[in-house]
Structures are given as structure tokens and as C-alpha cells.
Amino acid sequence: MYCGRGRSIEDLGLGNPFSHKPGTARFRVKTLAESLDCYQAWLGKLLKAYQKQQTCKLEDWERAYLRRVIKLAKDIEDDVVTDLMCFCIDQENYQTDNSKPDKCHTQILYEIALEIK
């Protein structure tokens, strides 16, 4: 399932709101590594709010995103979704921070979905 920013009808609406490139991301950061760090921290915040039943403290768009993450977790558990993908790794000149295990936000998203389920 595609997890980028609004590329198709099948899009889950789970693109990374942090990007180092100009475009449709909600927040602009300096590097890919920073975008992944920010995304991981932000998803951790959403998960913590969910676990503590404090989602009312989140902004509306964050609650909507969290609902989609929760649905993704259920779809993974039910084998409706078996693979997540994003376009970034296939881009020309894609460079990652090799000191970090995650190369794309979909890897972080998948880990969080497993924690939810």
C-alpha cells in the first residue's frame, strides 16, 4: 500500500509531514535524516496520546492521521495490507543516514502500527 503524499486513490493519507524538499509537506526540515527523526518523534507523540487516551490534546489533522494509523494497524493484523511503500527510496540521488536503521518513513510507520496492534 502506498504511504506517500496523495499520489493515488489507494493512498492511505500517511505521508511524512516532515520533508527536506519543497512541496506538499506540512513542515520543512533541512535533511532526510532530520525528516525521519522528526517523523519518528511525532508518531511517538501520537502513539503516547492514544495509549493514554489523551487524543483530545492533539490537533484535528493529527487525530485524523492517528485514525489512519490505527486503521493501518488493523489492516496489517488482518492481512489486508501486507506491504507498505513510498517513492523516496527509488528516487535518483537518494541518500540515507547509514548510521540509522530506518531509510524511509514507511519503516517507521510500520513499526508504530505493530506497536498499536
Rank of each mutant, 00 (worst) to 15 (best):
G6R: 04
S8W: 01
L12N: 08
L14S: 08
G15H: 03
F18V: 06
S19Y: 00
K21L: 13
K21P: 02
P22C: 00
R26N: 00
R26C: 00
R26I: 03
R28H: 07
R28K: 12
R28Y: 02
V29Y: 04
K30C: 13
L32K: 14
A33T: 15
A33S: 15
D37F: 08
D37G: 08
C38M: 15
C38T: 11
Y39H: 14
Q40E: 15
W42A: 13
L43S: 08
K48Q: 15
K48E: 15
K48W: 11
A49Q: 09
Y50G: 06
K52H: 06
Q54H: 08
Q54Y: 01
C56Q: 12
K57I: 07
L58W: 03
D60H: 03
L66P: 03
L66I: 03
R67K: 14
R67W: 06
I70E: 11
I70Y: 02
K71F: 03
A73F: 05
A73D: 10
K74C: 03
K74M: 04
I76A: 05
V81P: 08
V81C: 09
T82I: 11
D83L: 05
E92Y: 12
N93W: 05
N93L: 06
T96D: 09
S99W: 00
S99H: 10
S99D: 12
K100P: 05
P101H: 05
D102T: 03
K103L: 09
C104G: 01
C104T: 00
C104Q: 02
T106P: 00
T106V: 13
I108P: 07
I108R: 02
Y110L: 14
I112E: 06
L114T: 08
